[in-house]
Amino acid sequence: MATPLLEVRNLVVQFPTRRGTLTAVDDISFHIDEGEVLGVVGESGAGKSMTGAAVIGLLEPPGRIAGGQVLLQGRRIDNLPYEQMRRIRGKEIGAIFQDPLTSLNPLYSVGRQLVETIQTHTDMSPTQARARTIELLTEVGIPAPERRVDQYPHQFSGGMRQRVVIALALCVNPRLIIADEPTTALDVSIQAQIIALLKRLCREHGTAVMLVTHDMGVIAETADRVAVMYAGRIAEIGPVREVIKNAKHPYTHGLMGSIPAVGHDAERLEQIPGSMPRLTDIPQGCAFNPRCPHVFDRCRQDRPDLIPVEDSRVSCWLYDRASGPGIEVAKARVASTHADDLQEAADV
C-alpha cells in the first residue's frame, strides 16, 4: 500500500521542567498499515504511553510534541487545532485506556454515553443510535444488553466495563484504535477474554490497532508487528514472531529471557544488570550501552539508527556493516548470551 494508515516520522516528545527539558520520546519513526496490529512494548518510562498519547493528541501539558510529524492517511494531524483534532478522535482514531472506570463517566448511563458518541460523529437519529448501541453491546458480549444499556458504570464489573469501553472505541468504526494497557487492570481469566474480543472485533471491522503494553504475552497473542522501546527510542521493530523468537537487539534478548514461563525450567532467570536510565541522564551513544554485554567503543559515542536485519530493523551497532562484526556473527553473539548464563547457573 502506498500510504500507510498511520505514519510517525521522527517524533520527539519533551517535557520542560525546572531542571531542564526531558525528552520522553526521542526521535522515533514507525508506521501502521490498514488493519494491522502494532504492539508497542517496553518497561515503565520507556516512552510507550507517551507515543500513544502524542499520536492521539492527548499529551498532558507541559508535555508537547517538540519535533517530527504524525500522519493519518497521509494527512498531518499533529498540528491541528483542538476542535479539528477532537473530531478525528473518536471518529477516525479510537482510544482504550488501562482503567475502564476512569474512561467512563460515572454520572451517565452506559447507553447514554454510547448514544452521545454515536450522535456526535454520525447523523443517526436517537432511536437509530440506541438500536446501534444495543447492537454494539451484544457484539462485545454483554449479556442482556437491552437491560444493561440503562445501567451505570458502577453496576458493571471490571471486565464488563472494559467491554463497554471497547464498544465506545468501536462505535463509529474508526480506522485506528490506540489501546494503552487495555488488560493490565484485569484479572488473568478476564484478560484472556478481552484480548480475544479485541482481536476478533478488529479483524471483523478491519480496524488497525496500536497496542501499548508492558506484557510480552499479550503482544505475542495479538500483534502482527512489534516495536520494542527503551529510554524513549525504538530498540527493535519487526514481525512479532521474529522479535520474540529471534530477538536481535541485546535488550530485547535480555527482556525475553527475563520473563518466567511455565515449562521453562531454568534455576535462574536471565537478568539484565542495572536498570533503565532516568530521563535526566540518558547515556551518550546507544542508550542501552552501560547495561549491554556486547558493548564496544562506537556504542558509547554514536546513537545507532534502525538498521534492517532480515525482516526486522534493529538499532544496534553490532549489525552495522562498517563497525559491526557482520550480521551472522552479531546474531550468534546475541543469541548465545542466554546459553552462557545457564552454564554459569549450573556451575554454582
Binding site: S189, Q191, G217, A220, R241, I244, K245, V262
Partner: peptide, 20 residues
C-alpha cells in the same frame, strides 16, 4: 492455565473462557 499467553506461539488451541 489456559489463560497464560502463549509466548512460544505454538498455536496451542485455547479453550473458551467464560464468566467471571
Amino acid at each position: 492455565l489456559d489463560t497464560i499467553p502463549d509466548l512460544d506461539m505454538t498455536g496451542r488451541a485455547r479453550g473458551p473462557v467464560a464468566g467471571e
